[in-house]
Every structure is written in C-alpha cells, then in structure tokens.
Design a protein around this nucleic acid. Structure first.
Lengths: 146, 146
DNA sequence: ATTTGTGCAAATCGTTTGCATCTGA
DNA sequence: TCAGATGCAAACGATTTGCACAAAT
C-alpha cells in the first residue's frame, strides 16, 4: 500500500467555508480556506492585499502575493467581499457585504463604517436609458476638526 | 537693442483665466493656460490625464505628460476641478465643481452626471469624534438592462 | 486524468519625481 | 534676477500575468 499524503481534516467551520466556496465556483484550496477563515469570520474589517499578506505572514504561513490578489478579486466577484472605491492608489476590501456606507478621512487614510440605519439616501434618480441601478456607494469625506 | 521674444498677447478669455490662476497662486504659464482653456470653458466634462493629453496632441501642441498630471493635480487642489472616486485604477477629473453626484456604468467604464436637483441625501450621520464632514460623494453603479 | 490553482518573477500601467533647462514676474 | 515651471526619463508602487509545477475533483 502506497503511503499518500493525507490532507488535514477540515474543522466544522472550515467545511462550511469550503461549501461556500464551491457554491461560488471556487475550489476550496488551502490558501483560499486560510484567507476565508481570516476574512469571513463575521467580523467587519477593511483589508488591503498588503495588510492581508502581512497578517498571513505573521501567522507563519506563506502565500504568494499574486495569490492574495487573485483570491481577494475572486471573493469579491463571488460576492463574499466588497471593494471600496476610495481616492486611493490601492484597493480596500470590506468584509461587511451588507448595505452600508463609509466615512473616509483622507488625511489619515482612515475608513469607517456608517451603520446602515444612520443614513438614508432618498429620491434615487432615474438611471440613464437602458440601465438599471445595481448599487449605491456613498463616501462621506471627513477631516479632523481645526 | 536686443530683439526679445514677445509672448503672444492674451485674449480676453485668456486674461480672465490667467487671473483665476494667479488667484490660486499658480503662474499662468503657456501650458496651464492651454489646459485651462480646454477644461474651464464652462462645459461639464470628465477627463483623465490621458484623454486630456491626447486632446492636446490632436491640437498639434506638445505638453509633457508629467506636466499634464501636475496641472490636473494643481487645478484640483485649487478647486478648479474635482476628482471623482471611481475605481483605484486611474483618476477622473470633473470640470463641474458644483455639488452633484454620478452614475457609473462599470462595464462600459462610462460616467454620467446626476443633476443635483434629482437626488437628495437625507439624514447625514454624525461624523466620528473630532471630525467634520467635508464632502459627500455618491456613486450610483449602473449596468445595462438584461 | 483533467482541470484549476499556486508560486515566482517579470511585465504593466498610472502616476510621481529628480534634475537640468527654461520662463514668467 | 530668480523662484517657480517644464521636459524628459527614470523611479515607483500596486496590481496583473505567463509559465512550469502542484493540488483538487
């Protein structure tokens, strides 16, 4: 009998994440599971490819930078993450995919969630002919008081 | 008497633009005047550094790419242009500096203005402690109808 | 066995910067 | 005159990509 490498057994939570990924059409690879465990644990966080990468490294694990980027994009396309469009030169991903808006302090490069019940967008305009509204992104720019 | 290069006389409109620049603390150089003539003529347009550059080239004039970037940034800092937060890949500048929001069709990479009277943001939330709201940016994502 | 993902490094792309030269006040 | 602007090219940083190898179904 040939000895074969046995994959580490999945915990209950990991199995659930693996299912979520399969539903999204993504193979639950080791790297993706790791990232899913870090990001999809229910906490609301904002991460960049870089911050995620260093978080992974700190855990003593190595995932190629390109894979981190790819995974973040795939998760976003699958609706597991949300991309936040700031006037930044890098992408921020939000683990909170529920409808909510953001405060952004450009000077400090700090992003804050706005609880969805604290803000309302009224009177949505009609989209241009032949188009549907898919989402509404609100960024409220803030600055430290003088 | 030494013959000296005489600068082309300024038209009335150019003189007004030159004043506007001086007010902003910017020297009205040939390049800046040219860009101002293209962008600050009252029309509402969205430009990128690239689109502006090729517009300039088409006019048979040459301005260094770096200068185009610098000028767009300076005009924006001076409040003559507005930067639009679309995606983090490239910057779009809006010649309409009045308060208004945008539709964005990501698939077509098309940006449309929303007349300010067609949309209202109600119930602005309180900013985090020690901060003031400086502006509210709304991007309504749209997609072609199925 | 076949398909999909990963690692790695090189390539890209928008944008910024350093420095020598030029120009507007 | 002389601080500030421009041109040019090199530098840069975030992100993407190509390809050989590895892992998942």
């Amino acid at each position: 009998m040939k000895s074969k490498r046995t994959p580490a057994p999945l915990s209950e939570g990991q199995a659930a994440l693996a299912d979520k990924m399969r539903d999204a059409g993504l193979r639950p690879t080791r790297q993706r599971l790791l990232i899913a465990e870090l990001l999809l644990d229910g906490r609301h966080r904002h991460v960049t490819a870089d911050s995620l990468q260093s978080e992974i490294s700190k855990a003593g694990i190595i995932v190629a930078e390109g894979t981190v980027y790819n995974t973040l994009n795939q998760f976003t396309d699958a609706g597991l993450l949300r991309r936040v469009n700031l006037n930044n030169d890098y992408n921020v991903f939000d683990t909170n995919i529920h409808h909510h808006h953001h405060f952004y302090d450009q000077a400090a490069d700090q992003l804050y969630d706005i609880p969805s019940d604290q803000m309302k967008v009224a009177d949505l305009p009609n989209p241009p002919d032949g188009h549907d509204i898919t989402s509404v992104d609100v960024i409220i720019q803030i600055a430290p008081k003088a």
